[in-house]
Design a protein around this nucleic acid. Structure first.
Length: 577
RNA sequence: CGGGGCGUAGCGCAGCCUGGUAGCGCACCUGGUUCGGGACCAGGGAGUCGGAGGUUCAAAUCCUCUCGCCCCGACCA
């Protein structure tokens, strides 16, 4: 492509509302433009990258034996009503009516539709396994779109669905997809981690997320330094603390401590001159569908994992108690709740239960209690309900320690079981002529999100630094000046590169060198070739990888062999493992 | 949905408090000088001040309503 004829509207200033690196650079480098909240145009460069992601994902799905299909985006309401998601999805579902006033929705995902295909076409155990996938636009009216392409209301997703006759078959399908995901993410040149994840309200028993490791990520994960254990903190468990050597009976009796105005853990710790780990943090939650408050006690330096609390209580979700709830339940201001004397259900984290002389709220404003011990001074169900953090002991092995990372969820694989097939009557006859629901799995990759995610991981102050496999073009030629010899050499290299199958962008504009270099860095094509009068007189062109931080450091390559050298560089950069 | 903030030229912003000719930088157009890390000079085009209503002799500015957008929380690819 000739830059002079391309629509690559680079700008110096980012839109004021852009906060993430990917949003800033995608906009500044002319890859995308915002149309509305969470709605974007893909301009030529942006679409080329999107297509690169799609191509990798598609080839790995095909290699894994999945078959591409295309399901509709516009769905009659009956399908979502059939599974109850017409109501469950709530405001996230885009709804509309046709001219006859019938209800429709735009597809946020396609379990219902693919299950409909299965119930019509899969009749026998002999028809399975099957795996159908599509790469297509999804619509979700997100409560809060953000981060440019990171969270959109209209986005591109690859969704695959497996159908098996047996549990073992479903596990095999899941494993096949896991391997395909590993290959795809490797090919995209991303640093990522597959982690154990929450399956959400859908219920499945097995689920893993592919988290791209980025400091700006919204998700928190922990990984063990000794074994393969890695998990989203939502589901991460930690090794149970060793039993305390001190017996409760040896602890001094409860003492009353005056802590005027000090409710927050840090404040109390400062007033009493103790560490947060000697304190008991008591938080109140209201289980979904209930009005009773439940107290959750964790060690002062720990945080409550609300998903684990909900699980321990056997409900779908829990809500943080309101200030009014807290006052009603404890008779004290916020910050002075404690388990001693609390009338209601209490969940105690294992680490908090191991504290033998803790400091807890007294359920009386401005007062705390000292020497509080679980079992002696209060009772409560001992469970694992705290968020794992850096330094915690791994529950999966004896020696490991967990480290926390931030990530962006770019893929999620589930075994769904019979959740949808049972509801929708997708059954088959097994070898014993028994009618049974098919066992499903579902597998998503955020294709458009990956465009932004890759940038979050690969950028510097000047712009994007694409991995070769995702770059919109592979080589960026900057010809300097209007000298005929320079232009001829650039033209020839450009033609040779395309003849060798290398995707080249030639900046043939009549612009000053600085402008071209700045735009090249911003756009982020991995290999930049500079052709100028001086170098050319010596028979050389200059090659600088985008990852080279020193702007003056370039490699000189004889003009005659330039195309071959570049083609070889591109090829080697595309090799994975 | 709770909390906070913003809508003024294509982009980034000032002006609003204290009503009175709508401004700056970038981008764009013309001419000239420049040309290896976002050049300079001269000239020029471009704005229903988000929308509706109100107060006023007079509204970007004050009041009411409304729409849109962004940020912090609960959700997800």
């Amino acid at each position: 492509m000739l830059f002079s004829r391309a629509l690559i509207p680079t700008v110096k200033e980012a839109p004021g509302d852009a906060t993430s690196a990917s949003h800033v650079f995608l906009t500044r480098a002319g890859y995308v433009r915002k149309v509305g909240a969470g709605i974007y145009d893909f301009l030529p460069l942006g679409l080329r990258v999107l297509r690169k992601v799609e191509r990798i994902v598609r080839s790995e799905m095909d290699r894994a034996g999945a078959q591409e299909v295309l399901m509709p985006v516009l769905l009659p309401c009956e399908y979502y009503k059939e599974t109850g998601r017409w109501d469950v999805y709530g405001d996230v579902l885009f709804r509309l009516k046709d001219r006859k006033s019938s209800d429709y929705n735009l597809a946020p995902t396609h379990e219902e539709i693919v299950t409909d295909i299965a119930r019509r076409e899969i009749k026998s155990w002999r028809d399975m396994p099957q795996n159908l996938y599509q790469i297509q636009t999804k619509f979700r009216d997100e409560p809060r779109p953000r981060g440019g392409l990171l969270r959109c209301r209209e986005f591109i997703m690859k969704d695959a669905y497996s159908f098996d006759a047996t549990e073992e078959g479903a596990k095999a399908s899941y494993e096949t997809m896991r391997q395909a995901y590993v290959r795809a993410f490797d090919r995209m040149g991303l640093r990522y981690r597959m982690v154990a994840a929450d399956s959400g309200a859908i219920g499945g028993n097995t689920s893993a997320e592919f988290q791209v490791l980025v400091d700006s990520g919204e998700d928190a994960i922990v990984a063990c330094d000794k074994c393969e254990y890695a998990a989203n903190v939502e589901v991460a468990t930690v090794r149970a603390p060793a039993a305390s050597a001190t017996q409760a009976g040896e602890v001094a009796p409860i003492s009353r401590l005056h802590t005027p105005g000090a409710g927050a853990i840090d404040d109390v710790a400062a007033v009493l001159k103790v560490g947060a780990c000697d304190m008991l943090k008591s938080l109140l939650y209201v289980p979904g569908g209930s009005t009773d408050v439940v107290m959750v006690v964790v060690r002062g330096d720990h945080s409550v994992n609300e998903i684990q609390v909900a699980r321990a209580l056997g409900v779908a979700e829990v809500f943080f108690a309101t200030e009014a709830d807290v006052k009603r339940a404890t008779g004290a201001a916020i910050g002075f709740a404690g388990p001693v004397g609390f009338k209601g259900r209490i969940l105690v984290d294992r680490a908090a239960a191991a504290v033998t002389a803790g400091i807890a709220g007294a359920n009386e404003t401005d007062w705390h209690l000292g020497n509080v011990s679980h079992g002696r001074d209060y009772s409560g169900e001992v469970v694992d309900v705290r968020l794992a953090a850096t330094g915690d002991a791994c529950a999966n092995c004896d020696a490991g320690t967990l480290t926390a990372y931030k990530g962006i969820e770019a893929g999620h694989i589930f075994i769904l079981g019979t959740h949808y097939s049972a509801k929708m009557g997708a059954t088959f006859l097994d070898e014993a002529q028994q009618s049974r629901p098919v066992i499903m799995g579902c597998y998503g990759i955020g294709v458009s999100r990956l465009v932004a995610t890759a940038i979050e991981q690969h950028n510097d102050a000047d712009g994007i630094r694409w991995p070769m496999s995702l770059a919109p073009y592979q080589v960026h030629i900057c010809s300097l000046g209007k000298d005929a010899a320079v232009l001829d050499a650039a033209k020839q290299l450009y033609d040779e590169l395309w003849a060798l199958g290398v995707e080249a962008l030639w900046d043939d504009r009549d612009e000053r060198p600085g402008v071209k270099f700045k735009d090249a860095d911003l756009i982020g094509i991995p290999l930049r070739v500079t052709i100028g009068g001086k170098g050319l007189a010596a028979g050389n062109i200059e090659l600088k990888p985008r990852t080279e931080p020193d702007p003056k450091k370039a490699e000189f390559i004889p003009v005659a062999s330039a195309a071959a050298v570049l083609a070889a560089r591109v090829q080697s950069a595309l090799q994975v493992g």
